[in-house]
Amino acid sequence: MKIGLFIPCYVDQFYPQVAIATLQLLEKLRLNVHFPLAQTCCGQPMANSGFESLTSGCNLNFINSFEEYDYVVSPSGSCVLHIKDHLHFKGREQESENIKNKIFELTEFLTDVLKIENLSASFPYRVGLHQSCHGQRGLHLSQMSELVAPSFSKTEHLLKKVKGLELVALDRKDECCGFGGTFCVAEEAVSVKMGKDRVADHLIHNAEYITGNDMSCLMHLEGILKRQKSNVQVIHIAEILIAG
């Protein structure tokens, strides 16, 4: 089984430790993982700004980078959702469809494809889980509070296997953090207010760490935490699952 590691552009540049943790986690599970060096970006920043028309270069590059793999795995629900929803290129329709069917967000890959039961991770802290919207409502990584439907959470399922980790309950378990791509600067006031409220929910429940499946949301929350001079840190779930 050959796995292509898809690392979002901003993770590559700003959070290499998240990419390293993802790679190490998959290698620990004895998987054959490659990082195609030609990859850049899924195109979401342009598409969500209304410029989907400018993403064909990104799309072609993505198809070329990942078509040869059995699975594509990424530590980002948001980027995976974008690929699943919007990857297309004229003349490469079949390859696009193939990739859409074999791309997985990391926790989804661990629970649905690998069906792992044991993790030898340990992380003895109080952790709050921020459920990023695209992973949750887009990829259905966990049940959504709006629906009258049985609850489940792939992410929590994994976190519960981590030794010493105490998952804190939040007042609003799946409220958006306000990152939203270019929204975070175009609608600065509302974005920051949403972020502050999300951070406050974690702080009031004495979380020591805020984790999640998407570094973009965590980067936004981190920016607010740091401005508040809080000791609470953000950490990507891949870093927890490899810890200890």
């Binding site: 690392i7 540049q13 700003f14 959070y15 290499p16 981190e222 920016g223």
Partner: peptide
């Protein structure tokens, strides 16, 4: 971004260069 949030601190190297 910076108005009410700190910027992420750029690491020494990117993942691709580490890789």
């Amino acid at each position: 971004w910076y108005k009410q949030r700190e910027m992420p601190i750029p690491p020494k190297e990117s993942f691709r260069s580490w890789y």
